[in-house]
Each structure stands twice: as C-alpha cells, then as structure tokens.
C-alpha cells in the first residue's frame, strides 16, 4: 500500500487532535463538529461511488434515508435493540444500493444522475403515503432512541465512526481495488479489455457506498432522535454532500472529510448574517471559486503545499 512515516504521523495527529477537541472548543462548536463528522461520512460514501467510478449520485439521501428509517422504525416501533437494528439498517441500505446499481448497468453520465434524483424523490413520496403508522408520514418521527447524552459523548461517537470509516476506506482505496474502481471511472471499455468485470467492480462500489451511507444514516438518526423527511430527502442536502466531496477533493477519501468540515463551518459562520437559504448561494460561490482555482480540491492544494515543504527539507 506504500505507507510512509508521514501517513502514520498525519493520521495520528488527526486522531489525537479530534480526541482533544472537547477540551478546546465550546459545546456549540462541538455540535457543529458532530454534524461535520456525519457529513464527512456521507461525503466519503459519495466519494467511494461517484468520486471513483464517475457514476454521479444526486440522490445520496435515498441511501442515507433507508438506513435512518430502517433503524428508526425497528427501534421505535418494534423495540428492537440498536445492536440489531443498525446492522439490519446497513444491510437494508446495501440492498438499496443494488437498486441504484440497476440503472448504472445501462446508463451513464447525466442520465444516471437524474435517475438517482428520481430515487430520492420517490422515497420521499413513499415514506409519506406507505404505512405512515410506521414512518410517521409527512411529519416524520420523534423520540427515536438516542445512543449518547450530551455534546461531548455525541462528538466522540461521531468522531470514532468518521475516523473508522475514513481510515478503512482510505486504506482500501490504496489497494489495487481502489485503482480498479478509478479505472471504471476513466474508461469502462478498457477495464473490460483488461480482463476485469466492470459490472462486478461497479457492484462493489455501490455496495461499499451504500454500507457507509446506511451506517452514517443510522447513527445520525440515533444522535438526532428525530427524523424529518422534508429535511432528509432534500436537494440541498444532496448538494451539500456532493460539494463537500468535490471541493475537498473527489476520489481521495481525505478530501471529502476536509470538504465536510470546511462547508459545515462556512455555513455555520454565515448563519448569523444569512439565516435563510441565501447561505447556500454564498457557499455555492465559494465552492465555485475554489473549484476554479483547483478542480482537484483542497486536498490537492494541501498536497502540493506539502510536496513543496518536503522539497525544501
């Protein structure tokens, strides 16, 4: 995998830094960071699928929602313990990932993106009309059991999850599987011409992505304790995930984490000045500027800076 000393040093510093955060920042900031952690998980999920294979998902909340609703319904309506409901939620989301895979076997590019958007809209409509006694219908659900009490514990759980997902995916994408998934994004015909099953590779990407989305969605709902379909299946939420991954640096795993933190804090700091949806306009502008400066994202900016520093040393 070509691991170097600085990889260990950087990951170590990152983990230690996260562990110390509750000592350094206010509870309010910590709550912001909790959201950033979950957004990072969702952006990694998007990155594994769309960043690698080029199948752009505009409907990632579809997958996140499956995970969230599954565990919310199981725990609240049927009293299933979370140790059981969360794994079931992950598996159910993976099944959802296979549903999203189906169009990807036939269509590419913007067609695929539109279909994923349709999936999100579809599930939004479905949870409102199909068995509202279970889903809570339009109003959603509240009183979903929470796993942690207080910002500090919520932070530690989310940070632990985010780091686990990020580290696992980062290592996995450094293997030849990561190379093969990138190859699918660059030229599917040549992947086949190299003797690899492009369909199976796509399936792996969709399943991995769905598993992460399901895991993130399930834990997120057990942090919030409420589920609101209108906020969950929302195009702005889908865009926030995509923008986080893109401005951080798609196909790098670390980039989406950086992007998620960057975006969350940007939105947070804009809140006092722009309480409404105008904030999204500003972040769209910032994202665009960053993107024009370095299409490969913040990760690439940092990487080049680091290379320069090492060049001097």
């Amino acid at each position: 995998m070509g691991l170097r000393w600085y990889h260990f040093a950087l990951w170590g510093a990152f983990i230690v830094g996260l562990a110390l955060l509750p000592e350094l920042v206010s509870k309010g900031t910590l709550r912001t960071i909790i959201f950033a952690n979950y957004l990072a998980i969702f952006a990694i999920s998007w990155d594994v699928l769309s960043g690698r294979t080029g199948y752009i998902s505009f409907g990632h909340p579809f997958l996140i929602g499956i995970g969230a609703y599954t565990t919310a319904i199981l725990t609240k309506r049927f009293g299933v313990p979370v140790e059981v409901s969360i794994p079931i939620a992950v598996l159910t989301t993976m099944a959802g990932g296979l549903i999203v895979l189906l169009p990807a076997l036939r269509v590419k590019g913007s067609y695929f993106a539109m279909i994923t958007l349709a999936f999100m809209e579809l599930i939004y409509q479905l949870v409102q009309v199909v068995r509202p006694d279970l889903t809570g219908g339009t109003r959603g659900m509240s009183g979903v059991p929470t796993l942690t009490r207080g910002a500090v514990n919520g932070f530690y759980l989310s940070a632990f999850l985010m780091v686990s997902v990020a580290l696992t995916m980062w290592l996995l994408m450094r293997t030849r599987l990561g190379t093969a998934l990138s190859a699918v994004g660059m030229n599917e015909e040549s992947v086949r011409g190299s003797g690899l099953s492009a369909t199976r590779l796509k399936m792996v990407a969709f399943l991995l992505s769905a598993a992460i989305a399901g895991l993130g969605g399930a834990f997120y709902i057990h942090y919030l304790g409420t589920i609101a379909p209108r906020a969950l299946f929302e195009i702005n939420f889908a865009f926030t995930i995509i923008v986080a991954a893109l401005i951080g640096g798609a196909s790098t795993i670390i980039g989406p984490v950086i992007g998620a933190f960057f975006l969350t804090f940007l939105l947070e700091y804009l809140r006092p000045y722009l309480p409404g949806a105008e904030r999204y306009l500003i972040y769209g502008g910032v994202a665009l500027l960053l993107y024009m400066y370095q299409p490969r994202g913040i990760y690439e900016v940092i990487r080049q800076g680091w290379a320069r520093v090492r060049g001097l040393a």
């Binding site: 996995l172 030849r176 190379t179 040549s190 003797g195």
Partner: peptide, 25 residues
Amino acid sequence: RPFSEMSVAENIRVGLMPDNIWRMI
C-alpha cells in the same frame, strides 16, 4: 484507450490484476 489519469505503471497494473476482488485487495 489508456486510463487517462493513471500513470504508465498503473495502466499496466490494471492489466495485471486478477478478476477477483479479494485478491485485488
């Protein structure tokens, strides 16, 4: 039809891969 964002080495690497996810990893 090379993989445009990969190095020469990585392009050859894709050709050398077994069609087996586990072994790739």
